[in-house]
């Protein structure tokens, strides 16, 4: 009989000592191993909705699609809209719709990667872009097995975002400050955003870009190519 509550059952305490994110972390490990074996650089793009992740991808594809093999996993709560934009650029894309969840997890990426391979039909893949669901909070908790996490903050969002969303900055290797052509129209302090971001993560690579004027796109492409050949 149970001493604690007198319920007539036996109670036992089992030591567990495991991460709350165990299932995701194990699948992320398997994804990364798989990407490594195939020589694929996996890049996880995270940002708020509307920062320009898909537009940056379109520009990146324009610049690189004849040089390297690119594939894209598009994360959204609903619709195929982004995958359709990417396919128009002549690159295979799989839309991952989470049906409500505010982030991708590594199990969904695993599934998406295999669907992408069917579209590739044996063609070589060098860089896999994973465009996460637009959200600056939750995606930063979930390792997808990527090699490179890139966070975008656009000028209209404001220079205070690194301090407000520190985990996104701390877990990323690069920060793209997008829509830089809009700086003259906003009270946006470029020095402050860089200083705050670097104080959170001193090794962060920061690139100002504008898909409109082309500013910074070469620097971004060179950064990617450098990572690919490392």
């Amino acid at each position: 009989m149970c001493d604690t509550c007198g319920c007539g059952h036996e109670h036992k305490v089992i030591d567990v000592n495991q991460s709350l994110l165990k299932a995701n972390d194990e699948a992320a490990y398997a994804n990364r191993k798989h990407f490594n074996e195939e020589g694929i650089l996996a890049v996880n793009l995270i940002s708020s909705p509307g920062s320009g992740k898909t537009t940056l991808l379109e520009k990146t594809i324009d610049a690189l699609k004849h040089e390297i093999g690119i594939g894209v996993l598009e994360g959204d709560i609903e619709t195929e809209l982004d995958a359709e934009r990417i396919r128009k650029k002549g690159v295979p894309a799989v839309q991952l719709t989470t049906g409500g969840a505010c982030h991708l997890d590594s199990m969904l990426v695993h599934k998406g990667f295999h669907l992408l391979k069917l579209q590739l039909k044996g063609k070589r893949l060098d860089v896999l872009f994973i465009e996460n669901v637009g959200n600056l909070v939750c995606p930063s908790f979930f390792d997808l097995g990527e090699h490179l996490r890139v966070v975008l903050i656009s000028v209209p969002e404001g220079h205070d975002k690194p301090l407000k969303y520190p985990k996104a900055i701390k877990t990323s290797q690069a920060l793209i400050i997008s829509k830089s052509d809009l700086v003259p129209h906003f009270d946006f302090d470029m020095e402050k955003i860089k200083k705050d971001a670097l104080s959170l993560n001193p090794r962060l690579k920061i690139i100002e870009t504008s898909a409109k004027t082309g500013e910074g796109l070469n620097e971004w492409i060179n950064f990617l190519i450098h990572r690919l050949h490392r």
């Binding site: 059952h9 567990v16 000592n17 495991q18």
Partner: peptide
Amino acid sequence: EQHIENVEIEV
């Protein structure tokens, strides 16, 4: 930390 330390079960 973000982990499960232990669980109490009824057998």
